[in-house]
Nucleic acid binder design. Structure first.
Lengths: 207, 207, 207, 207
DNA sequence: TATGAATGAGGATTCATTCAT
DNA sequence: CATGAATGAATCCTCATTCAT
C-alpha cells in the first residue's frame, strides 16, 4: 500500500524547490551545491535525488514554476477587467506590486536564471518563452484597445508590449539587487502617463 | 632583456581579457576554467597568473573595462551635441547601434556579469555604479532641456532616465540571447515618439 | 494467514535468484544494483532483504546452486554407464551439450563468479571446490578404467582430469562471450580422439 | 621549454599502470578506487587524470599492455626455432614457465579482465582478439608441421590450437588463485605426450 | 619571465541497507 | 509480511592555484 503517493510527492518536491530557490538566491546556481539544498530542505542528498534526477532539473522546474507561470497568472488576474486601458494599467500595477511587496525573491531568481541562460539552452528557451507570452498578452490588450477605438489606430502593439516587458525585466535586475535610488511608484506613474499620452491622444480622449 | 615593461604588460592583459571574455560568453563565468582562458589566449596558465592574481580579478577587470566605461563613452560621444532633445535622441541611437552592430558581445557579457552579481558584491556594485552613472548622465540632459525651456517643466528627469536605462538593459538581455521577433529599430522609433510626446507637449512644440 | 511457510519461501528465493542471475549476466555483480534485482524479480527491495540478508548472499547462493551442483549432476547423469571410456565420453558430451544447448547462461555466470573470486574468498573457495570435485570425479573414472585394464596403466588420472576441467572452463570463457570461430563439436571430437589415443594405446585396443 | 615531455610521460604512465595493476589484483576493477591507485602510485588523483582521461582507460591500457602483447611475445620468442614440433613444445614450455615463474600476476589480471568483459565490450573484444591471435599462431605452427610432413595430414590445426589456448586460460584461472593440487609440470608433460601421440602417429615417427 | 605538471579539496551522483507504515 | 522512502558514506572526476625548472 503506497503510503502517500498522491501529493506527498508533490509536497516533497515543493519543499526541495523552496530550499533550492533560497540557496540559489544566495549563491547562484553554479555555486549552490546539492548538499546545500539538501541541508536547507532538511532532507538527505539521496532523498533529493528521488524527486529530481539532476541538479539541473531542480533549476528547470523552478524556472517553470516561478517564472514560467507569470504570463498565465497575469492573465488570470486581469482578464475580467473591462476596457483596454484599465487592464493595461492593472498589469503594470501588478508588476510593480509583485516586485515591491509580494515576491521580492522572484526578481533575484530571474537574475539567477539569466546567468544560466548563457550556457543552458533550456533555460534560455524558457526565459524567451515567458517573454513571448508576456508580450503577446500585453499586445493583445493593446490590439483590443485599438479595435475598440480606445487607442491610437496606428500603434504598433507588439513593439510597445516588447518595450514594456523589457523595461520590467531591466528594472527588476536593479531593484532586486537593492540598487539605491529607485522609485518604483514614480516609474509606474510616469510609464502610465507616457502610455496614455501615446496611446490615447487628445483627439481620442476628447471624444 | 630590456624591452617588455611599459605597455607590453598592458598588451598581455588585453589579450587575456579578450580571451576571457570570449570564453565567458560561451559558458558563463563559473563554468569557464582558467585553462580555457589560457588556451584561448595562447598563454600558459602560469603566465596568466602573472597578470591577474585570481580568476575573479579577470572578471572584475573585464567588468570595469567592458561595462564600466559605457557611461564615459556615451558622454564623450554626445557631449558636444547642441540641444537636449538631439542629444537624448543620439544617446538612444547609440545604444541601439551598439547593440545592433558594434558590440553584440557586450550584451552577452552584461548577462554573465549579472549572473555573478548575485553572489559577488564587487560585481554587483560595479553594475549598480554603471547604472547610476548612466542614469545621472541622461537625467542631466533632461534637466538641461527643462532648464532651457525645451522640455516639460515638471518632468522627473531621474525617473525617466531610470526607465530608459532599465529598458535598455532589459532589452539587451533578450536581444543578446537571440530572442526572435525583436525589432530594435521600431523600438527606438517608438521610444523617441513617446519621449517626445511626453517631454515636449504641444504647448512647447508650437512655440 | 496460514499458508506461506513451507516452500513458498523457497519459491520466493528462487524467483530472486533467477532475477539476480539475469541481472548479473548483464552487468556483472558489482554493477548490478539491489534495485535492479528487485525490479526484475517483481518484488520490492524490502522484500528481497527478507530472504537474503545481503547482496553478497544472493551471489553466494547463486554460486552454490548454479555452479556448485555441477559435479553432483554430472555424477548423477553418468554413474550408471558401464565402462570407463563410455562414461568419460559421456561426460564430455554432457559438457558440450550443456554449453551448447541447455544452459548457455551458466557459462556467463561462471565468468561473473570468477570476477568476484579475485576479492571474495568465499567465491574463490566455491569455484575451487567445484573444480576439485569435478576433477575428482573424472579422475575416479580414469582410475577405474586403469584398474579394469581398459586404460593405460601408467596414466596420471588426476593430471588428465585437471587438464580436462581446465580446458572445459577455458573454453567456456570464450564460448559464453560469443567468441567467433569456435567449433565445439570439432573440439569434442578431437578431445575424444586424443584421449583415446593416449589412454588406450594400440596394445590395449588390439587385445 | 618542456621539461621532460619525451619519456617522462611514458614513465609516469607506467608508474600509474603498475600501481593500478597491483590494486586491481587485490580488489578487482570495480572495487578499486581511483584514490587507491593514486595512493599506491604516489601521485595525486589530479596528476593521474593528466595521463589517463578515465579510470576505464587505465584498465584498457593495462589490458593492452599486459595481455594484448602476449601473442606477439610468444611469436618473438619462438619464431626462430626450427621444426614445428620443437616450436610447439617451446610454446607450451613458455606458457608454463610464465605462469610459474615469470609473471604470476598476469594470470590474476586475466581474471580481473574477464570479470570486466561481461559488461565492457572493449575489454571483451580485447580478450577475444588476444585469443584469436594466439590460436592463429599455434595453428600456423601445426599447419607448417603438416606441410612439412612432420604431422598427421588430416589434423585440424585450428581446433587443436583452440583447445590448447582454452586449456591454458582455464588452467590459469585456477593456478593464479592458488588452487591446491595443481601440478603444472605434469600437465605440461602429459599435454606434450598427447599432442605427440596425436600429431605424429607411429607411421610418421618411424620414417 | 614562462611553463605546465602537480595538488587536493570539493562537487554531483549512486547505492546497499534500514525502518516506519 | 511487504513496501519503498530515506540515509549518507563512498566514488569518480574537476579545477583554481602553486611552484620547480
Amino acid at each position: 500500500m503506497p503510503k502517500v503517493t498522491p501529493d506527498h510527492k508533490e509536497q516533497r518536491k515543493q519543499t526541495i524547490l523552496d530550499a533550492a530557490q533560497s540557496v540559489f538566491l544566495g549563491k547562484g546556481y553554479q555555486l549552490a551545491t546539492v548538499d546545500d539544498i539538501a541541508a536547507r530542505s532538511g532532507l538527505s542528498v539521496g532523498a533529493l535525488y528521488r524527486y529530481f534526477p539532476t541538479k539541473s532539473d531542480i533549476m528547470l522546474t523552478l524556472l517553470e514554476r516561478k517564472l514560467g507561470r507569470a504570463p498565465e497568472i497575469l492573465q488570470r488576474l486581469t482578464q475580467d477587467i473591462a476596457g483596454a486601458w484599465p487592464r493595461l494599467q492593472r498589469c503594470i500595477e501588478i508588476f510593480v506590486h509583485a516586485l515591491h511587496v509580494r515576491h521580492p525573491s522572484t526578481g533575484r531568481f530571474l537574475i539567477v536564471a539569466w546567468g544560466e541562460a548563457i550556457q543552458d539552452n533550456t533555460v534560455r528557451k524558457g526565459l524567451q518563452g515567458r517573454y513571448a507570452e508576456l508580450v503577446d498578452y500585453l499586445a493583445s490588450i493593446i490590439d483590443e484597445g485599438i479595435a475598440a477605438g480606445e487607442f491610437l489606430p496606428g500603434a504598433e502593439s507588439w513593439v510597445i508590449a516588447s518595450m514594456l516587458v523589457g523595461m520590467a525585466d531591466g528594472i527588476t535586475l536593479y531593484w532586486s539587487t537593492g540598487t539605491p535610488g529607485m522609485d518604483l511608484r514614480a516609474m509606474r506613474f510616469t510609464t502610465l502617463q507616457m502610455l496614455r499620452n501615446y496611446l490615447t491622444p487628445l483627439a481620442i480622449r476628447e471624444e
